[in-house]
Every structure is written in C-alpha cells, then in structure tokens.
Amino acid sequence: MSVITLNVNGAVHQVDVDPATPLLYILRNDIGLRGPRFGCGLGQCGACSVIIDGALVRSCQLPAAAATGAITTLEGLSQNGTLHPLQQAWIDEQVPQCGYCQNGQIMTAKALLDRNPSPTDAEIREGMQGALCRCMTYYRIHAAIKRVVAGQATGLAHEAVGTAAAAQEASV
C-alpha cells in the first residue's frame, strides 16, 4: 500500500492503496463516484471511461498511481448545476434505456467533440465505436450528438400529442 494523490473533478484526494490498483476501483470504492462503471475490466466496452487531461481513458486499464493528471468523471461535467450540453441533449433525445453504459457514451462523445466539434456521420460512428451499449441506444446517441453539433441541445423533444385519442397516431 502507498499513499497516492488523485485530482478528481477539481478536488484533491489522497488514498492509501496498492498503487497498481486500476483507477476504476479507487474512483468507485474510495472516492465514492458512481459515473465510471465496471463493464469488462478489459478495455473493450468503455463503461469505465474518464477524461484525464483532455484524453479519454479507460479507468479499468490504468493503474491508479499513473493517473497523475486532472481526472474528469461524468459527475464533473456539469458546471454550477448546469448540465453539459451533451447531458442536456441526452435528456432531450431521451437516450438511455438501462443507463449503465451511458457514462461511457457521454464521456466518449465529449472527447470526440473536444477533438472535432463538428464530426460527420462517419466520424461519429468511428469516434463512438469503443463505447458499447447492450440496450442498443446507438441511434438515439447519434441524434443527441448531432443535436449538440447543431447547437440545439436545449428544448424538449416532446411529440406534439395531447389526449390518448390523439396519441393513437393512426387507426386501422
């Protein structure tokens, strides 16, 4: 065990752990964060993604002692209670099903847009490829990213429906 210092979402934490422990377990078990999640521990699904000094990192693969930069997690994206445009777009498009993978989706999208603020369709597919969703919310995610790219990440995506009868969009 040894004391390591982590800078997470602007706060400094000191933890006394085996320095080889993957960052993911420290973030979850010692610092009490819930955004980064365990999906594979193999670097294959992206559920554990965090951003360190601007780069997308799979926290299940990084020894905690090597995490010397400024770590941002899903919890750190909103500023003074205002959601990050991606988070707002995720709500507008009602992206999640179970939600378990969505940390990886949002963090991967953030890294993508930070690198390339107006990706093409192909660049979105390519840039998001590492973030697996077993509920298959991909199409919604693409819509949400495009919404941010178009600068429309506010306002609700409600369908214009009123009563139950009106909601029955077509009848036989």
């Binding site: 819930r34 955004g35 994206l77 959601l83 969505q102 949002i106 409600h158 009106a166």
Partner: peptide, 17 residues
C-alpha cells in the same frame, strides 16, 4: 396517458447522480 412525458429516470442516469 397518451402523452410523451419524459422519463423521470433519465436525468439522474445522465448526470451520474
């Protein structure tokens, strides 16, 4: 019923809370 009300579970799934 019949309205596309936004799901209440989505904001906390998106902000990590």
């Amino acid at each position: 019923v019949g309205q596309s009300i936004q799901r209440y579970d989505i904001p906390p799934k998106v902000d990590g809370s």
